[in-house]
Nucleic acid binder design. Structure first.
Lengths: 275, 275
DNA sequence: CAGTGGTCTAGACCACAAC
DNA sequence: TTGTGGTCTAGACCACTGA
């Protein structure tokens, strides 16, 4: 084990045992380096390791502290609201005050053409290197800056072709109604939850550290399945800080619904970074 | 922006634009350092940043590569099986071959007394610094070393007192039946999903990198609610690599079930690291 | 203005991978 | 054997925080 790993391990024990409780200040890097008889840089690596694990955080030039575990918002999906609403996010009493926020470019809704993330391409049934139009929104609590979610809506090409829905004043809520009329069958929804590290842009938009805290990601999939094989109409990609949110699902008693379980592909972020 | 961040950004663009596709080898650190006219260490930091984001990985001494996104297993819970089964994990056709694996100490089931993670203490209704007995298992596919889940079962103190269940040959499956008899009401289940970075021990047990890939975490909560306020009997803490697993939930049509939504507390790993 | 973390360099040695 | 990433050091300067 490398020296910096040993030191990190020492600190880990002190932190998880409660010696340094959440919020406590850690010793100065310089002091500890001297104590251990290692160089500045080696000590920094030890601290860096723990930062990457989400155990500690350095606050600018005022010290290094044990990370507090903030309360997490437990969110549940409400299907009925989803059917009416055009906002792609989790709702409930705790999200009453939520509204669209400004994206980095100053808009509330951004419509751009991007490379489709690998797992969404897979779900939509398009080639992995396809570019599609995506509708992006940032939604959250204007008063609590960390309570926000970034939501992308990807429409299947056949939907975009069949229905002139994206334009004008037809919200997504209206779209679901129209789709059901058009397909003469009810839509179904499912969600697939995963996690990965955020891109710098995502971290900035969601006001979360870009290291130590993962992104919790929900793919909300809208599809027809009643007649014949599954036909995916839309995939919403909802991203939020895993330090701030937890997602809840009731488990119905008895046999739960199932769907095809072919392996999904993973993804990593595909947003075009500003070069 | 620091020099190493600029360089990382350059590489990010090359990777997400497909210039360096998944699996491709990145230039040697030494070469790039020379090209950019920076020191070795600065270039290492740039690479380290991208590693922490999960974009690239270095394979020992054979080079640095763009991370492949492996197929993710999409898992669904089957409630019926859960009622019968004593194994705390997600099941379905793709987990047919799964069985208990050996924990680092060589056992299949480890029963130890540990500090309760903050969010589980909260759910169980015990003080944050309580120590409780936990039953730990590692379950997975013996043939695919990354297909594994680490599951801890925490019993509420009142359950441990009321029923002599932990000992002997009474599995958890049996426990649920007995609990329902005892309480003369059906048990209910819900799941709360979150993510955080793994501890080194968790990363080792789950055969995942300890950096760049988050841990996907499910709290499966067993409780009585029919008569009076909610009474939590057990919390299972199921952890898996977010690069390998995604969790799926069907959304029932209409009003979905709800439960109390007080903020949950966050957690970080509390396992006793070997000092 | 002192304290503290952030960045950067030049140079060195090691250990394992792949041939 | 060579290539490659991993680790470590001593020393320096910067920039923001907070008294």
């Amino acid at each position: 084990m490398a020296r910096y790993e040993e030191i990190a391990q020492d600190l880990r024990v002190l932190i998880t045992s409660g010696e340094y409780p959440p919020g406590a200040a850690l010793p100065l890097m310089r002091d500890l380096a001297e104590q251990y008889g290692v160089s500045d840089i080696t000590m920094r690596r030890a601290y860096g390791l723990l930062t990457g694990e989400g155990l500690i955080e350095s606050r600018g030039r005022s010290g290094t502290f044990v990370r507090e575990h903030p309360d997490r918002l437990r969110l549940t999906v409400r299907t009925r609201q989803m059917e009416r609403d055009e906002l792609g996010y989790y709702s409930g009493p705790e999200t009453q005050g939520w509204r669209p926020l400004q994206l980095p470019d100053g808009e509330q809704t951004q419509v751009v053409t991007l490379l489709v993330p690998a797992d969404i391409a897979d779900t939509l049934g398009v080639a992995p290197d396809t570019r599609l139009t995506v509708r992006r929104r940032l939604i959250g609590d204007p008063d609590v800056e960390t309570h926000r979610q970034l939501a992308d809506s990807w429409l299947a090409p056949w939907v975009a072709e069949e229905l002139p829905l994206l334009s004008g004043r037809t919200g997504l809520g209206g779209m679901y109604d129209r789709l059901e009329e058009w397909g003469s069958q009810p839509l179904q929804w499912r969600e697939e939850i995963s996690a990965r590290m955020p891109s710098p842009e995502e971290a900035a938009a969601l006001v979360m550290p870009s290291t130590g805290v993962p992104l919790l990601r929900t793919l909300r999939i809208t599809y027809f399945a009643e007649a014949g094989p599954e036909r995916v109409a839309e995939v919403q990609d909802i991203r939020m800080s895993a330090a701030v949110f937890a997602l809840g699902y009731p488990l119905p008693r008895g046999e739960s619904a199932r769907w095809p379980v072919e392996p999904a592909t993973g993804d990593y972020y595909q947003d075009p970074p500003e070069a």
